[in-house]
Design a protein around this nucleic acid. Structure first.
Lengths: 203, 203
DNA sequence: CTAGGTTTCCTACAACTCGTAGGCAACTCG
DNA sequence: CGAGTTGCCTACGAGTTGTAGGAAACCTAG
């Protein structure tokens, strides 16, 4: 079956590690090739372009994130589930800031006229949906009514994502108390709001 | 006083417009030079590097944002102030997505050993503080106790920033109701939470 | 109105990155 | 062992970043 060596998954995984070490912007063909001890043209047998590489990293990392949150939220419901879910995402982001960046820094590119979307884009969309479904499961566990589900997911996702983003950007580093200390309070308020919505008092 | 032409502010302002039209990643020396009808080396009389250019855009835009929110929140307090403040930020982000990106996509770079920070970094930090002070004014208007001020700012900023970021990324585009519809609900919940904190029931 | 000084802008160039083309070598399977 | 497949390479063109040094345009002083 031919000479063994790198395969596409190896390349994408190495790119994800590179993002964590040097930032998502450092994920380029040339830097990755050096890191893998290979000449850059070699990588083009595994990826179709630098953009494709970064999109593939996004898809790969979204799957990792979904795996991590799925595992963390296997048991529990209501508040326990919320806390496990949110902590899983935040732990992931702190442990792997470059990977977390990858989940947000990619927009859905405008489809080139006449051409079809590259596979990596579809994979990223699919992996994104996995994560969205997990968020939905959390709010459903609160008993939020179907009419409010979407809103609840948006509120929860916005707050968690916003806090993590600002925390990683260092926005919370110059005031007391430590970011670590206020995080449980965020979860408290979120729990209270979701609980209130579940009681059907409208949002 | 020498030949008139571009000055640094012209260059930065054009770069901000470029960010809105083609995305923050398109803010590079060569693209900007073409857009200004000038050869790329010319720009190096106004900026010291491509990185410096992007940092300067961040500082410039953070000041614009602070100007916009300051104006929008001149009168009012409590809920009215919150709504005016949050809408000013969101309107800014929707009108100028590339500019808004610039406010978040820049990290504080590690200071190169022995070297001093470029001016643009200090300017960005100062402009960032202006925005932080505005947020503080909003939560103070609710009568949040001093011990809770920092937490309240973080909660509010996280939610507003998170919602706007996900909205701009298109995360809310594939479910009903429209993003426009759930935004006032976000402000309602935020108002309720801030009001609760002001009553001193702890957070 | 001319001379100086200042500032803008240019061409030329080195180093690097992206991506393509085409070829050699190593491995697997019959 | 032979054939096919696969991974990696060198060579190259185009484009970007940033530096060096010089020419042209403008303002102000005498």
């Amino acid at each position: 079956m031919g000479r063994p060596g790198l395969n596409r998954t190896d390349v994408i995984a190495a790119a994800a590690d590179l993002a964590d070490e040097l930032g998502f912007d450092a994920v380029t063909v040339s830097v990755l090739a050096r890191r893998l001890g290979v000449r850059s043209p070699t990588l083009y047998s595994h990826i179709s372009s630098g953009t494709d590489l970064r999109t593939a990293v996004t898809a790969y990392v979204l799957d990792e994130l979904a795996d991590a949150t799925t595992q963390a939220t296997a048991a529990g419901e209501g508040r326990d589930l919320l806390v496990a879910y949110a902590n899983a995402i935040r732990d992931f982001a702190r442990r792997s800031p470059g990977r977390y960046d990858a989940t947000t820094r990619q927009r859905v590119p405008p489809v080139p006229a006449g051409e079809s979307r590259p596979d990596s884009v579809d994979e990223a969309i699919t992996a994104g949906r996995r994560n969205a479904d997990l968020a939905l499961a959390v709010v459903r566990s609160y008993g939020v009514t179907e009419a409010d589900e979407t809103y609840a997911v948006r509120l929860m996702s916005s707050l968690i994502h916003g806090y993590i983003t600002l925390e990683l950007a260092g926005s919370f580093a110059h005031s007391e108390p430590a970011s670590e200390v206020t995080w449980p309070d965020v979860l408290d308020d979120l729990d209270r709001t979701l609980g209130r919505m579940a009681l059907g008092r409208g949002h």
